[in-house]
Design a binder for these strands. Sequence first.
DNA 1: ATCTTGACCTAAT
DNA 2: CATTAGGCCAAGA
Length: 113
Amino acid sequence: MSQFFNQVYEIVKKIPQGRVTSYGAIARYLGHPQSSRMVGYAMNAAHNHHEVPAHRVVNRNGLLTGKHHFPGSKLMQQLLESEGLTIKNDQISHFEDFFWDPNTALPPFEIGF
DNA sequence: ATCTTGACCTAAT
DNA sequence: CATTAGGCCAAGA
């Protein structure tokens, strides 16, 4: 029952400020390593849930592939830069240093929440 | 109702 | 190295 989407939102909410994660990392944390696409799609539907910092979710390369879905064209980058990140040409600098992996930062798949 | 597209990722060629 | 193929499943046409 779209539980997957809600689980995605719960995780995205837990991303610390100034850190970012990837679609695949979230999908894998939820036990669906091949459903990374759906994470992105969940973000598309996340506009209803304003507490979800969708700008902290980028693709595996640290590239801001979803920036076109934000109002304006620079908003996503601005939000991230305001949190201390450096972005050049839609690419997060030192992406691995700011990468936040739910698989290691959170307890393994907290079911039920 | 079917067909296509998509904020993606991994593995195989 | 680069390219392709497969998987996932929700919306839009």
